[in-house]
Nucleic acid binder design. Sequence first.
DNA 1: TCAACGATCGTCT
DNA 2: GACGATCGTTGAT
Length: 182
Amino acid sequence: MRYKRLPRTFFDRPTVTVAQELLGKTLVFQNHRGRITETEAYIGQDDPACHAARGLTPRTKPMFGPPGFSYIYFIYGMYFCLNIVTEEQGFPAAVLIRGLLHEDGTHYNGPGKLCRALGLTKEQNEIDMITSKELYVLDTPAWTDFDATPRIGIKQGLDKYWRFVVRKEVLQPQKNSVKSLS
DNA sequence: TCAACGATCGTCT
DNA sequence: GACGATCGTTGAT
């Protein structure tokens, strides 16, 4: 089975919808690939936790651009975080990729660890993930069994339940079947 | 120019 | 649970 890459229309939708439906999709960067297990939505200038809340700056410029582009920023002096821009050009919003189940079996929890493992840096900021040959998302089956919680590591916007994480049973589907054999 | 802070993580208590 | 590492971005001077 050969999976197609997600088209721009996938990202040109409400950010919460995109964040939820990205769970289970396959992120590809160079020789790495893994399925997305955890996302967060950051939506517009009315969301106080969104980097774009205080307007357009050099850093947040990608968020104001077309959907389907990467937005990678440097944080805490040592980590990068990967986002994918959503919604129409001019409306600043993006989905933060927080968790990835690598095809080698490693589950990366946390945006900083994920980017470090894959080698994602500012070099990959503002890449068009619809046309790029090194950074894109494949349309593998979605995981629809997930929880919604407040976002992590922020001090404002905690009333919004815009973090989406697949339930851990999804990540160990073989456990029940093993038990039923005995 | 300057100082405070941050969508994190590992280590220590 | 608390804290330090480490530095680019930002808004204020």
